[in-house]
Amino acid sequence: MGIEAEELVPGVVVAGPRSEAPPEAPNRSWLAAVGWYVLLIGLSLLVLLPVWLTLMRALSTPAAAVKPGASPFLPHEVQWGVFRRAIDQGNLWAALGRSMVVTILITGGQLVTSVLAAYAFAYLRFPFKRVIFALFMATLLLPIEVTLLPNLHTVRDLDWFNSYQGMAVPFMATALGTFLIRQGFLGVPSEIRDATRLEGYGHWSYLWKFAVPLTRPVIASFTVISFLAAYNQYLWPRAVVTDSNNWSTIQIALRDLTTTPETSNIAVAGALVAAIPIVVLLILFSRQIVQGLTAGAVKG
């Protein structure tokens, strides 16, 4: 029986065996697809709405935006120069640069320490391994406020105030990363480990040539988590930066972006500028993030 093309709805041609398929079936699947797209577009708009409202608030003159009857969804008396003013007034590019340095140091440090610790917990045999791992995990229960003062004393004693190492080093190891990557390593089939042992790959080469590439989705999602947490840090930089003119990170610079009610849109514009690296990160790593978040959730 030949396959024939038929026009079920204007402009949509569906190929199929004319006499075998019930005539309603293609229509129903077409409608279902449209329904799904409408739902997904609606959800996407819902997620994007706060970003849009922020953009409108930044572009609008504050006085015009709060006038009775002014729609929050549209700009009012647009000020295109607001972003330039925010960047100049808050010295945002410099602060953004410092934030990027600190974030890259923390993320890179966390990746290296987490991968190494995860490897030890996943593959090596040593005394009290389970107890040590449990203690490691227990540190997840400690909020930053608990460790703030001891860390602050240590950094002060090391004379690391107003320095990159002061902002980054205390956060270069994390139990969360160790846990996530260890789980990823444990997911690598044991036969692959055996095959590499037979072929003569030692711990170091197995780690970098096999374990890390095979857990790339997990490592990528942890990278994003780590990057976001490091980039959004506020309390710690605030504590160890006393020279905010020369050492403020983007989050501190935003807070210092002094505004009056008449210029409140400048702070909003500054927040949008601060979000640029995060948006870039999400665009670059979107595939890995989705893979990492859904790893093991669906049958492959």
Binding site: P189, E191, I192, D194, A195, R197, L198, E199, G200, F210, P213, L214, R216
Partner: peptide, 18 residues
């Protein structure tokens, strides 16, 4: 294992997927 001059074919083949 690397010095035994043996090669092994595993049940799951243990190919390196990457």
């Amino acid at each position: 294992p690397r010095d035994r001059d043996v090669a092994m074919v595993f049940q799951s083949y243990a190919l390196y997927p990457h």
